[in-house]
Amino acid sequence: MVIFSLVLFLFISIINLFYIIRSNEYFTRILSLYYFLMNIVVLLLFYFIYSNKFALIVNIIFPILIINMAIILLFIKNGIDKDDSF
């Protein structure tokens, strides 16, 4: 179960990385970034479960989840401040 999830999220993360690099639209890039970060977080989570490192879930996954949210909100805010078209 965990290995299937690892493969799925790894696949989605790699494709999303290409989207972040190649996309021209600002909002699509931000959306891809969020999707990528969320999948990376879940990928890490499943890796910790797979390798029986359960203590690292609390130490690493919870802060990363909060940082993920903060990063996206900061990106949005900076993008708005810099772009005059808004």
Partner: peptide
């Protein structure tokens, strides 16, 4: 996050 992205 989706709410904020969509609104903007």
């Amino acid at each position: 996050i989706i709410h904020s992205i969509c609104r903007i």
